[in-house]
Simulated assay, not measured.
Amino acid sequence: MKDTASLGLDGVGKVFHNLSYDELFEHEKARGEGRVAENGAFSVDTGIFTGRSPKDKYFVNQDPSTKYIAWG
């Protein structure tokens, strides 16, 4: 993996790459980025701005999308 400076990213600190589900879960808990729900799932409150604009949709022209989308 390239170092972050070679990618134009300065001062980002340590980068964790391709974590397993369990590793990611532990990082999220340790950093207080949400909380563990009663059923064991990790829950995050994203606030009021959670939706995407309808104009921000992108489709890739490849299988299986090609046969289900009328490309115009």
Score class of each variant (00 low, 15 high):
Y21P: 05
M1V: 10
Y68M: 11
F49E: 11
G47E: 03
S20I: 04
S6A: 12
E28T: 00
D10M: 12
L19P: 01
G13F: 02
G13E: 04
D10H: 14
E28H: 02
G32D: 00
A70L: 12
A5N: 10
F25I: 01
T66R: 15
V15E: 07
E28N: 08
E38Y: 02
G13R: 03
R35E: 06
A70R: 12
S20C: 02
T66L: 12
H27M: 12
T50Y: 11
W71V: 05
V36G: 02
H17Y: 14
L9W: 02
V36C: 04
F59L: 15
K2R: 13
E28D: 08
A30T: 09
F16G: 11
D56H: 14
G40F: 03
V12F: 11
M1S: 10
H27S: 09
L19S: 08
N61W: 10
D56W: 12
I69R: 10
K2W: 07
S6H: 07
F59D: 11
E23I: 06
D10I: 13
D56T: 12
K14E: 14
L24I: 04
R35G: 02
H17S: 13
G8P: 00
H17L: 11
S43R: 02
L7I: 05
N39I: 02
A5M: 03
A30V: 08
G34I: 00
E28A: 06
N39C: 02
A37P: 00
H17I: 13
P54M: 09
K55N: 15
T4C: 09
V44I: 11
G40E: 04
G32W: 00
A37E: 00
L9E: 04
P64T: 05
N39F: 06
S43H: 03
G8Y: 05
